[in-house]
Design a protein around this nucleic acid. Structure first.
Length: 656
DNA sequence: AAAGTCATAAACACAC
DNA sequence: GGTGTGTTTATGACTT
């Protein structure tokens, strides 16, 4: 009371402090570092803005440089994750152009290589099988081919669509050579393959770059030794994912020959016309970020030698480019695997047509089209299930073949209702980028609430003490290893503020649980945080994360009802979270069923599933749990539903 | 422009 | 008194 007034007045002063926040925030208040306060705001931000690639780069500068390059990857994924506006915000026009061109070229190239590769493979397969006298049902093969071709088509369509979208958005002006390729080749089959929307989610992992442990793809890339001259690592290497469907994986290489060779040749053959240079096109230098006009090849060569000589800067740029390529390769690998899974599958049951071609509505509006559909499809079940143990396992993006098909269901056109994808984006995103967040000082693109929930749900008991939550944060995110006061306060704040978090008294103290129902009640997503997120992430630095983040954020935002049971099919449900069993069974009864719905299966008290207080909740437990009353602040859940918490999860969770 | 979200910051109350 | 927990309120940046 009195106190309050007092504090209030006091507060007015501090409000200015917010200035601090906003200060850093000018770019975005909360953002980037806002939180992380001092440090971040100070350093981080300046960093982002400040650097200009100078001639020589110190390690730090190099880092900065990479940050600057962020846009590269951003642009790459952009269509799926950012609205054009956002992209434009982040990138300067020239940058945009350059990046997009680069992206187009790369994709094209890789697709073509991939295509060839696959053809070879098929050929080989056919031959082998025929020779082996194995009366392999031609039908099966035929189907395989069909499926395969469809997949390829799908990929191409995806690219086409992608380019079109870009064009439509005015983000890029298609250039004859680049655009024409895919466009011509593909008799535009309108239905843009949804699934195709290759999800870049895992990319960030790769981005970890050198350090990343066991990434098959990565490894192969490295082994090949990147061709720094420009054509970039070939995607082909991925055609032979080391661990894919056994039957197929081995065929990859025709003669066990380093794929590289062939592929490289291939690529050169298509790209390099006599008198041309992979880095030279349309009269200008195609070196990332450089658009210098060069009248002819000679001049270009000259330019190349002078401007892009072997120095730190060029090297750094190369590295960035390598990463970009790796990301694409990962995508390709995923698609490839999916394709193989499809083939494998069809081999057994050659009928199933491809479900995915739902006519994709032609992108309602630029901003929406991207919405990473796939992510959902991508999120694979096993997701977070891995206990957060420090198991620095190789977070392989590869999806278990069996699951591959899942994408078929889920992968819907962009705007699809989330219901189809029940996968919790955050969980999948985290699962896939677990290592990344763990090591990179990047702010995760989720709200505190969603993170807290995730932390809780990851535990078998679905309950955590505050301290355990803290630990989860620090364990899972490098970002939360600093500025503890700030985010811890935020965590507490969120716990108290949101109804979905229920405090349960325990003998040993109190634990926090999640009232899934409350959580689900949250209102539908909204495209939060874009710009902010963007800035944050960028300032946060890793663009890999950016990607993932965006993807996740967008995914979430586009799938409001991600848990809606209605659409769930058992199998997929499991993918949801670690809660699997319980969850699957009971819970999620979100909105779909009936607004406020009283979930039939749940007792009024709800708690959807879980919450069994550890040890002995004893009496306390009784009180809160079942009870409606929910322990702490939480009124009857069913009653005042949305009041308190309605936040994140689906929405683009960013923690700005 | 209003309303709603979210992140932050901070004041307070309590319990240990 | 210090620290950890929880709860609240205020603010600014953003989005719808």
């Amino acid at each position: 009371m009195m106190v309050e007034s007092a504090s209030e007045t006091i507060r007015s002063a501090p409000s200015s402090q917010n200035g601090v926040g906003s200060l850093s925030g000018q770019a975005d208040g909360s953002g980037g570092g806002g939180a992380t306060g001092t440090t971040a705001s100070g350093t981080g931000r300046d960093v982002t803005t400040g650097t200009d690639s100078n001639g020589e780069m110190s390690p730090a500068e190099l880092l900065h440089f990479q940050q600057q390059q962020v846009p590269v990857s951003v642009a790459m994924m952009s269509p799926q994750m950012l609205t054009p506006q956002q992209m434009q915000q982040i990138l300067s026009p020239p940058q945009l152009q350059a990046l997009l061109q680069q992206q187009q070229a790369l994709m094209l190239q890789q697709l073509q290589e991939y295509y060839k590769k696959q053809q070879e493979q098929l050929h080989l397969q056919l031959l082998t099988q025929q020779q082996a006298g194995k009366p392999q049902p031609k039908e099966a093969l035929g189907n395989k081919q069909l499926a395969f071709q469809q997949q390829l088509l799908q990929m191409q369509q995806l690219q086409q669509q992608h380019l079109l979208n870009l064009q439509r958005q005015g983000l890029v002006s298609l250039q004859p050579s680049q655009a024409s390729g895919p466009l011509q080749t593909l008799p535009q089959a309108s239905p843009v393959s949804p699934t195709a929307a290759v999800c870049p989610t895992d990319l960030p992992q790769l981005w970890k770059g050198e350090g990343a442990p066991g990434q098959p793809a990565e490894d192969s890339v490295k082994q090949e030794g990147l061709d720094l001259t420009g054509t970039a690592a070939t995607a082909t290497s991925f055609a032979a994912p080391p661990k894919v469907s056994p039957s197929l994986s081995h065929h990859t290489l025709p003669n066990g020959q380093p794929t590289v060779l062939t592929s490289r040749r291939d690529s050169s053959s298509h790209e390099e016309t006599p008198g041309s240079h992979p880095l030279y096109g349309h009269g200008e230098c195609k070196w990332p970020g450089c658009e210098t006009l060069c009248e002819d090849l000679g001049q270009f060569i000259k330019h190349l030698n002078t401007e892009h000589a072997l120095d730190d800067r060029s090297t750094a740029q190369c590295r960035v480019q390598m990463q970009v390529v790796q990301q694409l390769e990962i995508q390709l690998a995923k698609e490839s695997e999916r394709l193989q899974a499809m083939m494998a599958h069809l081999h057994m049951r050659p009928s199933e047509p491809k479900p995915f071609s739902q006519p994709l509505n032609p992108v309602p509006d630029s901003s929406s089209f991207s919405k990473v559909t796939v992510s959902a499809a991508d999120s694979f079940p096993d997701g977070l299930v891995h206990p957060p143990t420090s198991a620095a396992a190789p977070v392989t993006p590869l999806r278990p073949p069996g699951l591959g098909s899942a994408s078929l269901h889920g992968g819907g056109p962009a705007r699809r209702r989330s219901s189809d994808k029940f996968c919790s984006p955050i969980s999948s995103e985290l699962a896939q980028n677990h290592e990344f967040y763990k090591n990179a000082d990047v702010r995760p693109p989720f709200t505190y609430a969603s993170l807290i929930r995730q932390a809780i749900l990851e535990t078998p008991d679905r309950q955590l003490t505050l301290n355990e939550i803290y630990n989860w944060f620090t364990r899972m995110f490098a970002y939360f290893r600093r500025n503890t006061a700030t985010w811890k306060n935020a965590v507490r704040h969120n716990l108290s503020l949101h109804k979905c978090f229920v405090r349960v008294e325990n003998v040993k103290g109190a634990v926090w649980t999640v009232d899934e129902r409350e959580y689900q009640k949250r209102r539908p997503p909204k495209m939060t945080g874009s710009p902010t997120l963007v800035k944050n992430m960028i300032s946060g630095l890793s663009y890999g994360a950016l990607n993932a983040s965006y993807q996740a954020a967008l995914a979430e935002s586009s799938f409001p009802l991600l848990n809606s049971p209605g659409m769930l099919n058992p199998g997929s449900t499991s993918s949801l979270l670690p809660l699997s069993h319980d969850d699957v069974g009971a819970p999620l009864e979100p909105l779909s069923s009936n607004g406020s719905s009283s979930p039939p299966r749940l007792s009024p008290p709800q708690y959807s599933h879980q919450v069994q207080v550890k040890e002995e909740p004893a009496e306390a437990e009784e009180d809160r749990q079942p009870g409606p009353s929910l322990g702490a602040p939480n009124p009857s859940a069913s009653g005042p539903p949305e009041d308190r918490d309605l936040e994140e999860e689906l929405p683009g969770e960013e923690l700005s």
